[in-house]
């Protein structure tokens, strides 16, 4: 069978996401809290610097 003779269907095989965890309200609020996010930014930047220094790049 080749691609040309396989009839196309209009049904979209969308991946089932019903088992994926939904973030709760508290998690969503925390993701946009400027104060806690500022400390995450500092932590992430320090982590990058640590990796850069260790790798020498």
């Amino acid at each position: 069978m080749t691609e040309q003779n396989v009839p196309a269907t209009a049904v979209q095989p969308v991946f089932d996401l019903s088992g994926a965890p939904m973030p709760n309200v508290r998690t969503l609020q925390a993701r946009y809290n400027p104060f806690s996010q500022f400390f995450k930014l500092v932590g992430f930047m320090l982590n990058i610097m640590k990796l850069v220094i260790r790798s020498g790049h």
Binding site: E3, V6, T9, A10, P13, V14, F15
Partner: peptide, 30 residues
């Protein structure tokens, strides 16, 4: 967002995408 995985688009017209999925099925997405 609706994910469609393991796809290979074969043809794209001005209003529809014809793509194949890993199971060999062909689909048309307007």
């Amino acid at each position: 967002v609706k994910p469609i995985l393991g796809t290979h688009p074969h043809k794209i017209t001005a209003d529809a995408i014809t793509y194949e999925t890993l199971d060999g099925e062909m689909h048309e997405l307007p």
